[in-house]
Amino acid sequence: MLTKDQVEHVALLARLALDEEEKERYTTQLAKILEYAAILNELDTADVPPTAHVLSLQNVFREDHVGPHLPPDAVVGNAPDKEDGFFKVPRII
């Protein structure tokens, strides 16, 4: 069963701030979804390989050439804050 502590831990990992009400709500909703997902356990998949890719592709490469770079204005054009061509962020702790 999913607990509120777990929800808080997951929120930390996902870097999401949650208030009390959200924590409660996500605990209930995620528990319900996970409960629903538990029907997968009806299946014995011990000998079934996982499918991460539906494609049978392998060894897709590009050659080692340098291509065009973004012009400096475009690089920081969407930045919420910038300084001198750098992206600017609040202090790191």
């Binding site: 996902a14 870097r15 999401l16 701030a17 969407n78 930045a79 919420p80 804050d81 992206f87 962020v89 609040p90 202090r91 790191i92 702790i93």
Partner: peptide, 21 residues
Amino acid sequence: VRYGYRMPDQDNVIDMTRATR
């Protein structure tokens, strides 16, 4: 950090990202 919405006036980058998300 790089594009889109940012919650303003946050003390540090962790708080900023949490609040932004």
